[in-house]
Design a protein around this nucleic acid. Structure first.
Lengths: 213, 213
DNA sequence: GTCTATATCTCGATAGAC
DNA sequence: GTCTATCGAGATATAGAC
């Protein structure tokens, strides 16, 4: 994992710890001393590198947000079938969630509209077409060649994102009925990917007029 | 909306405000004075009724958690087709999320395993069979009568929950590209319900051997 | 039950030695 | 760059009048 700018080794460690701490406890719940402890240094050093909590949070937010955006963007590629496009998308987005947890998604609530809009625009400039437009393109092509049904693009996009994200939200509850879930996390994640691809692709697939009620 | 115990009028108002405040800002981010302000009373009164922040939070958690559990439980009913079972489930669960936001779901992360397990068991006693077992029953019946495919129950359950929940997580982002989203929230929610039911049911439906690749 | 005033505490932030 | 010590803001919590 790389930070957004060039970080010294210590700085990088602090930044990583900050990502974890914010992800675990939210903006307000995060504790500067917890970040310091995790790295094995003093609070003052965290302030030395990142000035204050607000700036540190913003830097973490920017990093995660652009990572998220770029991941989703890159995950939508050309492929001969929409099934393959979907497979790659679910695969890469889930891997992203595995690395950073569902927090990058949940963070979006914590920013005021203006900041969000600004950051959104800035990243869009860097990556060209937004993820949604890209996804729309692939879906519409698949509809045209008769592979899938003509469903609302936004809704479908939300469905995929939701199915992927939910595993990581529900994991603590999953662990209740299956205490060893944490051990088999990798396996569970791979199973989940397959299920999502199967269920969604089947839901989208065009089965011809006589099969559509 | 009813509180878990018998509340006096004022107590109930404070409790409601607390739900909102915790939902908006998380456990640590919530402010006692914000709750008091919202009700139009003094901080001291909040303490008078609920002793301290920790207890208040736990009471809110318990209330939301059992509401969630009971909603999901009641939403899974007998119906001649699985499509109807699914429709009712998506409808009721989404309404629950509309009322309380995605927070009840996210709160599950904030409790330690032991408390969670205890609360889980307690509610299970009250409601009899857990939601998952109920859902399993309905799905297996539908598989037997050839209505739907034989997919993993847990996975399918997660898929539905995820698709429903995500709208409320993504809403702040939705509002970015569509500033009037907040105004049409009701409409958007109803559209989303329809999409979810359509996509999932189509994904589950058994199309006969020759249509299964 | 409800308020004002205040005590107590937690945590972010800074000063200053090394 | 890194630490110790400490300040000060802001929040929770309590005491005590009404």
């Amino acid at each position: 994992m790389q930070g957004p700018k060039e970080y010294s080794e210590k700085e990088e460690k602090i930044f990583r710890a900050a990502i974890e701490e914010f992800a675990e406890n939210g903006k307000q719940g995060a504790r500067m001393h917890a970040i310091a402890d995790h790295v094995g240094c003093n609070k003052a050093l965290v302030h030395y590198y990142f000035r204050n909590k607000e700036r540190l949070y913003e830097e973490v937010f920017d990093f995660l947000f652009s990572r998220f955006f770029i991941t989703v963007h890159n995950a939508i590629t050309d492929a001969p079938t929409f099934e393959e496009t979907l497979t790659r998308f679910v695969d890469e987005f889930t891997d992203f969630l595995e690395e950073f947890g569902p927090y990058p998604i949940l963070m979006l609530k914590e920013m005021d509209m203006d900041s969000k809009k600004k950051r959104f625009e800035r990243i869009k400039e860097q990556t060209g077409m937004g993820p949604m437009s890209l996804f729309r393109e692939k879906m519409e092509q698949a509809v045209e060649r008769g592979e899938i049904r003509d469903l609302d693009v936004r809704q479908t996009f939300m469905s995929i994102m939701g199915e992927c994200t939910y595993l990581f939200i529900a994991f603590p509850v999953l662990s209740l009925s299956n205490p060893e879930a944490a051990k088999h996390k990798k396996e569970i994640i791979e199973e989940r990917k397959q299920h999502i691809i199967d269920l969604i692709y089947n839901g989208l697939k065009n089965k011809g007029l006589n099969n559509r009620q």
